[in-house]
């Protein structure tokens, strides 16, 4: 066996390792997409897989996203476990009809007879200087589609653990990979036995007592940075990393907000109609009597994702998060 990851490993390397381990463990796992074979994917996440497992297991498909997902449906019907790579967030849209009309509902409409264990990997989010159509945060569309799981890691270890769990899941999973974190590193050790994280559990990334930042994916490190900065100003903030938008872990989120009494939801996706609205509503429904202030949102603006030259004005940053925390009606009470 060759060793893929160096120490410390990047998120991209952990994802590669997860794919490789899944393919080695289960011959029904097939990776497919544009440029995933010889090139190893534009982000190199499938690097080496075609070489190790052959082109029938890691396949360069024609350039057609509906065709990729549509044929993956047929492959899953015949007992394979396709892992589909969409090259970029905005280039997953052509596959939307297959996703909504078939992938998400096949189990349901066949009363469980025909589950579709397909994992759809989508690199998403901004902050990498990408030109138009390379930085969308499209998770709200997928969250609004019953039958899909929507998962996104924020740490190197979760990238491995959640991708393994997604591939093992008997339900279709839309697996959002934060592009900005592909090259992030942490102390994840590829030599150690790896943990497969269950889908649907949020984690408290940083414990705090005064307010909860509820976030996921690329905004998790930003929130941790904000929490660090807040400490200097006397605010002790908790950071909850959702990891899975569907299923949604009401339990962890509710427990945190009931403890702290204040909450800000942070994400890159647009605020209007974005995930934050759903999350704020859920928190309010469950924590009303514990809340000292309305649940606030720090989100991308309601504009098409801006060009890289202006994207820093759009992305939720530390200052904007701290401003929101500052507006949580501190004068009123605790």
């Amino acid at each position: 066996m060759t060793t893929v990851a160096l120490k410390p490993a990047t998120m991209a390397q952990a994802l590669t390792r997860a794919l490789r381990d899944a393919m080695a463990a289960d011959p029904s796992v097939h990776v497919m997409g544009e440029d995933v074979g010889t090139l190893g994917g534009v982000f190199r996440v499938t690097d080496g897989l075609a070489k190790e497992f052959g082109e029938d297991r890691c396949t360069d498909t024609p350039l057609a996203e509906a065709g990729i997902l549509g044929t993956a449906v047929g492959m899953a019907m015949y007992g394979l476990r396709p892992v589909v790579e969409m090259q970029f967030d905005a280039f997953a849209y052509p596959a939307f009809e297959q996703l909504v009309s078939h992938v998400s509902r096949m189990r349901n409409r066949t009363r469980g007879a025909m589950p579709l264990p397909i994992t759809i990997r989508i690199p998403y989010g901004g902050g990498i200087g990408g030109v138009e159509h390379h930085s969308d945060s499209s998770e709200a569309y997928y969250m609004a589609t019953p039958g899909l799981h929507v998962v996104t890691p924020a740490t190197v270890a979760d990238a491995y653990g959640l991708l393994r769990a997604s591939i093992a899941s008997d339900d279709p999973v839309v697996f959002f990979e934060p592009k900005r974190l592909y090259w992030s590193k942490d102390s994840w050790n590829p030599e150690e036995p790896q943990k497969v994280e269950p889908i649907g559990r949020a984690v408290v990334r940083r414990a705090g007592r005064r307010a909860t930042l509820i976030t996921y994916g690329p905004s998790v490190p930003v929130c941790l940075e904000a929490a660090e900065a807040a400490r200097a100003e006397g605010w002790d903030l908790e950071v909850v990393d959702l990891r899975s938008l569907v299923p949604f872990d009401d339990e962890t989120v509710t427990a945190s907000v009931r403890r702290t009494g204040r909450a800000v939801v942070v994400h890159e996706s647009t605020g209007f109609g974005g995930p934050g609205g759903e999350i704020a509503a859920r928190v309010t429904e469950r924590c009303f009597h514990y809340l000292e202030a309305p649940v606030l949102r720090v989100a991308g603006f309601d504009i098409p994702y801006p060009p890289p030259m202006l994207e820093r004005h759009h992305l939720p940053g530390v200052d904007r998060i701290l401003d929101a925390v500052g507006r949580l009606q501190w004068e009123a009470g605790s």
């Binding site: 044929t71 394979l80 009809e97």
Partner: peptide, 15 residues
């Protein structure tokens, strides 16, 4: 939409 499914299934069977 059923056409790519047929292709995928046939492809999987061949594999």
């Amino acid at each position: 939409t059923q056409l790519p499914h047929a292709v995928g299934l046939a492809h999987a069977a061949r594999l």
